[in-house]
């Protein structure tokens, strides 16, 4: 089930010593369910914090966040964990995978957590979708950077979450590989219809997205 996202006057403030840092500042927006959004902005503009807030990884200092009717600001840590388990797929920068689990086992994790049964065929299809059908028994250190991120995409999408949050998944990849990851994400998005937020500062990727949210100093500028 794909989910809409509503943010109203959301702020997140960190304190570094005595100094307040407003990573996200009075941010409001509505993201339609099933859309594919790029979250653009320079480093430090608040992209990661915004995605973490929508994913329930961090709690807002102020404001309301609703994802598919779930009021994240009112949830405790356990509630947020269960929300992520069932409704969110996450892709991070850099090391995304559990190093001691194989490709297959990494992709299997969300299914195990949601209590799914008989998912071997589902994983096999997903491995085929990401063109790693022969690498299911490999460990992350045996994969290239692009392959690792494809596995991360597969893990984020395998349990058909309502929202997929991709935090600069192409940051450490060459442009061809980055384009491949984006293509994969778009293809899976079209297949499942899930809402995708893709944080990036790569103009080539931003141009490919149907909607763009641009951040600067924690505020939406466009």
């Amino acid at each position: 089930m794909t989910l809409p996202i509503h943010l109203h006057q959301v702020s997140k403030t960190y304190f570094d010593g005595g100094t307040a840092i407003h990573a996200v500042n009075s941010f409001s927006t509505a993201i339609a369910s099933g859309s594919f959004h790029a979250v653009a902005g320079r480093s430090g503009s608040g992209k990661t914090t915004l995605l973490n807030l929508i994913g329930g990884i961090e709690s807002p200092s102020a404001g309301d966040i609703q994802v598919g009717g779930h009021h994240l600001h009112a949830m405790d840590e356990t509630g947020l964990s269960l929300f992520r388990r069932h409704h969110v797929g996450m892709i991070f920068q850099g090391d995304n995978l559990i190093p001691k689990l194989t490709v297959y086992e990494n992709i299997e994790l969300p299914l195990l957590l949601t209590g799914a049964d008989n998912f071997a065929e589902t994983i096999r299809c997903m491995l085929s979708d990401i063109a790693l059908e022969d690498k299911g028994d490999r460990f992350p250190h045996q994969l290239s950077g692009g392959q690792k991120q494809r596995v991360a995409v597969a893990r984020a999408m395998i349990h058909c979450p309502g929202v997929v949050l991709a935090d600069e998944p192409t940051a450490h990849l060459d442009s061809a590989t980055a384009a491949g990851i984006l293509e994969l994400l778009i293809r899976l998005h079209e297949k499942t219809g899930t809402t995708v937020l893709f944080a990036t500062h790569d103009p080539a990727i931003i141009r490919r997205c149907e909607h763009v949210i641009t951040l600067a100093d924690g505020r939406m500028v466009s």
């Binding site: 994913g55 990884i57 840590e77 356990t78 964990s81 269960l82 929300f83 992520r84 388990r85 069932h86 969110v88 996450m90 991070f92 090391d95 995304n96 995978l97 559990i98 190093p99 001691k100 994790l109 969300p110 957590l113 949601t114 893990r155």
Partner: peptide, 16 residues
């Protein structure tokens, strides 16, 4: 820590 952080991000609760 990163491994546990990823597991938590995937939805493992604090008690789990």
């Amino acid at each position: 820590y990163r491994e546990f952080g990823i597991l938590k991000a995937l939805g493992i609760t604090p008690n789990e």
